[in-house]
């Protein structure tokens, strides 16, 4: 989970912002109800997008005021849609635990200790989620294995590595039976996965060059001290713009009843804004986030903290 999938909330209408918040808090609540309190910490923007995409083709679920642990005694409006959230929560748990496993493999014994502890903490939740979505759990394991093979071979192909990750993300809607819904959603998520992988690769490039860790951009472009030239960055921007356009075109084929603007905002404005921030090395710096996923501090409308 990277937290790269977020709308440009500075141009969101108030009711769309409310719907986004309610979906986010609803996911947090559903994780707690289905996988126990600790699973609430896995809530993130990326999976909120998945919920909005899956539920956008249905009539909007009702929302109610719910207890919010991040606020202590406070309450927040959240979407009540247990059936709609069922697959999304299972995907969230599987992806987060697989991410922990991946981090665990990349680190030495001492540095991997926190990941080992967290994996232990979410073991039961993972088993439950994998029982609910066995095909998705198998696909994730298989594609991560493929990714590791490519990494071990130090593959310079950004397409091949991004494809492995994108297939995992697209697998989040493989359970849908109607091809008129499944095919466009798979394409939206495939391109989202491709975008995520490229954005994350660029974000980590400096660190990876410093530690001589695998990064497809290192082998594709041979950067100078972790920096790509302007021409290479422009080319990468073209690649991500293409993914954005293809995801947007796929979105247009969905019979969206709700959240269409919110989803379009995330794809057409959120993705390029995030990539521009990553390109300018401002994504990690909180100060640079205004207008990407949060309103500026003076608005006082920042959504509650997310897992990144």
């Amino acid at each position: 989970m990277f937290g790269y999938v977020r709308p440009r909330i500075d141009v969101l209408a108030a009711e769309e912002m409310d719907a986004y918040r309610a979906a986010y808090c609803g996911l947090c609540r559903a994780l707690g109800k289905q996988y126990g309190f600790r699973a609430r910490f896995l809530v993130n923007y990326d999976m909120t997008f998945l919920y909005l995409l899956r539920s956008g083709v249905r009539v909007r679920a009702e929302a109610a005021s719910c207890w919010c642990p991040a606020r202590g005694c406070g309450r927040k409006v959240c979407t009540l849609d247990p059936d709609g959230y069922e697959t999304v929560t299972a995907c969230t748990v599987i992806l987060c635990v697989e991410k922990l496993r991946d981090n665990l493999r990349d680190e030495g014994f001492l540095r991997s200790l926190p990941y080992r502890f967290l994996r232990l903490l979410y073991r039961r939740a993972y088993k439950k989620a994998a029982r609910r979505l066995p095909a998705f759990a198998a696909l994730t394991t298989e594609q991560l294995e493929r990714l590791r093979t490519l990494e071990a071979a130090q593959s310079p192909s950004i397409d091949a590595t991004a494809d492995a990750f994108a297939r995992i993300v697209a697998g989040c809607v493989a359970d849908l039976e109607d091809p008129a819904l499944r095919r466009p959603m798979e394409q939206v998520l495939y391109q989202t996965g491709r975008f995520l992988y490229l954005a994350d690769a660029l974000d980590d490039l400096r660190e990876d060059c410093k530690h001589e860790a695998y990064n497809p951009l290192r082998f594709r472009f041979a950067p100078n001290q972790g920096e790509l030239s302007e021409q290479e960055l422009d080319y990468l921007t073209q690649l991500t713009d293409s993914s954005v356009n293809l995801a947007g075109a796929a979105l247009a084929l969905l019979p969206l009843q709700t959240c269409d603007r919110l989803l379009e905002n995330t794809v057409y404005l959120g993705f390029p804004a995030v990539f521009a921030a990553v390109r300018a090395h401002k994504f990690r710096a909180k100060a640079g986030l205004a207008g990407i996923g949060r309103r500026s501090a003076k608005d006082g409308n920042t959504p509650k903290g997310e897992t990144e």
Partner: peptide
């Protein structure tokens, strides 16, 4: 055709 498409924001400008 490969990389010469419109920038993503252009399509959404109308919406805004």
């Amino acid at each position: 055709r490969l990389t010469g498409g419109l920038p993503p924001s252009a399509r959404l400008k109308q919406q805004i």
